[in-house]
Design a binder for these strands. Structure first.
Lengths: 205, 205
DNA sequence: ACTTACTTGCTGTTCGTCAAGCAAGTATTA
DNA sequence: TAATACTTGCTTGACGAACAGCAAGTAAGT
C-alpha cells in the first residue's frame, strides 16, 4: 500500500530523456497542426508536454531544429501506418485500397501538420529533404504496384508506371488539402470516382 | 529639360492613395511568396514598396487585414489571367488547354503565395472564405466545360461533371504543390499523361 | 486654409536563447 | 549496503531582438 502510492517507477536516465523528447515532439506536432508551422512558442510546447517552458530549447537547441524533428516524426508515423496494411491483392485492386486508405483513414491531425510542413518545405532546406523522402517513398510504392499489375495482366503493358504514380500521388495530395479545409468534403465519392477513372485508363483488355 | 528631371507628375490624392495601396499589396504578396504567410514584418512591406515602415499598419489597420487583402489580390489575378484565355474549342480539348495553362503558365511567385494562403486558410476564417471562392470558381469552370463536352458529344453522357471537375482540380492543386517545391519537376509530362487518362476515361464512342 | 497622404518616434509585448541552479540517477569505494 | 563523488535531466530567471500598434508630426494636394 505504502509503496503503491508512488506510481512512478525508477527509470534510467536514458528512459527519462527518451520519454521527455517524445512527449515534446508529440506536443509540438499537435501545435503545428493547430496553429501552423510557426504559430506556437517553445514555452507552449514544454507546457503542453507537461514539462517546463525551457526544456524544448534545452534539448533541441533551436526552434527550427524541433520543427525538423516534428517533420521526421510525422513522416515516420506515415511509414509505420502503411506497414500495418495487410496485402491481400496486387495491381489495380491494391492501388484502389491504398487510395482509400490515404483518403479515409489518415488521421486528420497528422494530415494537418503535414500540410504545414509540406508548404514550409519551400523555405527550409532541411524540411524539404525530409518531405522529399516521404514523397519518394509514396511514389515508389505506387510505381511498384503498377508494375505488379502489368505483370499479373490487370494493367496494360504500355502504361508508364512513373507517370501514373505521379498522377495518383498528386491527386491524393490535392484531395487531402481540401479535406483538411473542409472535413465534410466529399472525399470518399471523389476517391471512388478517381479509382473508376484509373480502371478505365489503365486496365488491360 | 528642366522639368524633365522631375519624373513625378502631380497626382490627385485618390491616385496617390490607390497607387500606394497597390504597391503595398504587391510587395506583401512577394514577401508571402518568399518568406511564408507570417514570415515578414509590416515594416518590410513598407520598405519594399518604397514607402515608410509605418504605412502598411496605417492603411490596413492590422497585419491579418493586409494578409487578407493579399489573398483577395492573388485570387483576383487568377481570374484576370483566366479571362485572357481565348476560347477556341469546348469539351475535352478545352479542358486539356486549361490544364496546360494552369501547369505551365502560372507565375511561380503567385503560385507560391497561393500555397501559403491555402494552407493558412485552415486557421483564418476570412482567408478560408476567399480561398473557397477561388476553389468554387475553378470547379464551376471545369464542370461547365465537361457539360459542354457532353452536349457536343465528345464526352460520355454518364459522366458526373461535379466529381470529374473535383478530380481535375485536386490533381492540379497537388501538382502545383510539387512544382513549387521543385521547379524541375516533370510538370508537363505528368500533365500530358493526366490528359491522356482523362481522354480514356471520359471520351465518348 | 484645411484635408488627406505619408513618416517618425515610442511603447508594450512576445519569444528565442542562454546560463545558473536544483533534482534525479549512476558509478565508485569501502 | 551505504556513503560519496559525479553525470545527466530538468527548471527558473534574465536579457535582448523583433515587431505590431499607436500617436503626434511633416509633406503633398485641393
Amino acid at each position: 500500500m505504502a509503496t503503491a502510492v508512488k506510481t512512478k517507477k525508477r527509470r534510467t536516465q536514458a528512459e527519462r530523456r527518451e520519454e521527455a523528447e517524445e512527449k515534446l515532439i508529440v506536443a509540438a506536432t499537435e501545435l503545428v497542426a493547430m496553429k501552423g508551422f510557426d504559430g506556437f512558442s517553445l514555452a507552449e510546447v514544454g507546457d503542453r508536454a507537461g514539462y517546463s517552458r525551457g526544456l524544448p530549447g534545452h534539448y533541441f537547441g533551436s526552434k527550427i531544429e524541433l520543427q525538423n524533428r516534428v517533420a521526421e516524426y510525422v513522416v515516420n508515423e506515415f511509414y509505420v501506418d502503411a506497414a500495418k496494411l495487410e496485402v491481400r491483392e496486387h495491381g489495380l485492386k491494391r492501388i484502389a485500397s491504398l487510395i482509400r486508405h490515404y483518403l479515409v483513414s489518415s488521421k486528420l491531425e497528422r494530415v494537418k501538420a503535414l500540410t504545414f510542413l509540406f508548404t514550409h518545405a519551400q523555405l527550409e532546406d532541411s524540411l524539404k529533404q525530409t518531405m522529399t523522402k516521404l514523397h519518394n517513398q509514396a511514389l515508389s510504392v505506387l510505381k511498384q504496384e503498377i508494375e505488379l499489375g502489368i505483370e499479373n495482366g490487370t494493367i496494360r503493358k504500355d502504361v508508364d508506371s512513373d507517370l501514373q504514380a505521379g498522377i495518383i500521388y498528386a491527386f491524393l495530395r490535392g484531395q487531402l488539402g481540401f479535406a483538411v479545409l473542409d472535413p465534410d468534403y466529399e472525399n470518399v465519392k471523389l476517391g471512388e470516382a478517381f479509382i473508376q477513372n484509373l480502371k478505365k485508363s489503365l486496365s488491360a483488355e
